[in-house]
């Protein structure tokens, strides 16, 4: 597609990359705001569906950004979203890891960790609420969410992916 659009994809996901303090869930509301409200690349429902796709594949849980890029400008868009989302943050971590040890004795290292921890939990909660607003609609979805919550929380031996796939099967059987 056109250059302008490709540059926008790269720019949006690079911005999200450097904002993703605390990981993928933390940056979800901002991703949704940019992708759905600002750039109109996807509808609310498409965003929910693509987020769902990302949950059933293994590995880092924000690989779904590739599917968003694909919707904007095909396979090249997918590649740009992948590079945009993972490379900037990766470069920062890479650089920091090389100088981090120089701050071994700094008491601020612990301040940073202790202070950022509740912020990260807050961002994760915000991401959960943001997905829930589109994903929770009617009694069946409430029941699935509660069942998966209980399963992941209390049945430690089962891979969480099984519960997520189970939610898909229940949806398939009851909602279609």
């Amino acid at each position: 597609m056109n250059l302008q659009e490709n540059l926008t994809v790269l720019g949006v996901f690079s911005l999200l990359s450097v904002l993703a303090v605390g990981g993928g869930a933390a940056v979800l509301p901002e991703t949704k705001a940019l992708v759905v409200d600002t750039h109109h690349w996807l509808t609310d429902d498409q965003f929910r569906d693509i987020y769902g796709l990302g949950q059933v594949v293994p590995g880092p849980n924000m690989l779904m950004v590739m599917v968003i890029g694909y919707h904007v400008s095909g396979y090249f868009g997918a590649l740009l979203a992948y590079l945009g989302f993972f490379v900037p943050a990766g470069l920062i971590s890479w650089g920091a890891s090389r100088i981090w040890d120089h701050f071994e004795g700094s008491p601020w290292r612990r301040s940073l960790q202790e202070g950022l921890a509740p912020l990260v939990v807050g961002l994760m909660a915000a991401g959960t609420i943001s997905i829930a607003r589109t994903a929770i609609d009617g009694a069946t979805t409430v029941a699935i969410a509660i069942a998966v919550f209980l399963g992941v929380r209390f049945v430690k031996k089962v891979n969480p992916a099984i519960f997520v796939l189970g939610g898909g099967v229940v949806g398939f059987l009851t909602l279609s």
Partner: peptide
């Protein structure tokens, strides 16, 4: 669509558990 609605709802449950 029905399967993905189920997966989306399940993701909410999982994210809640992981956040806690």
């Amino acid at each position: 669509n029905a399967a993905l609605i189920g997966v989306g709802a399940a993701a909410v449950g999982m994210l809640t558990a992981v956040t806690f």
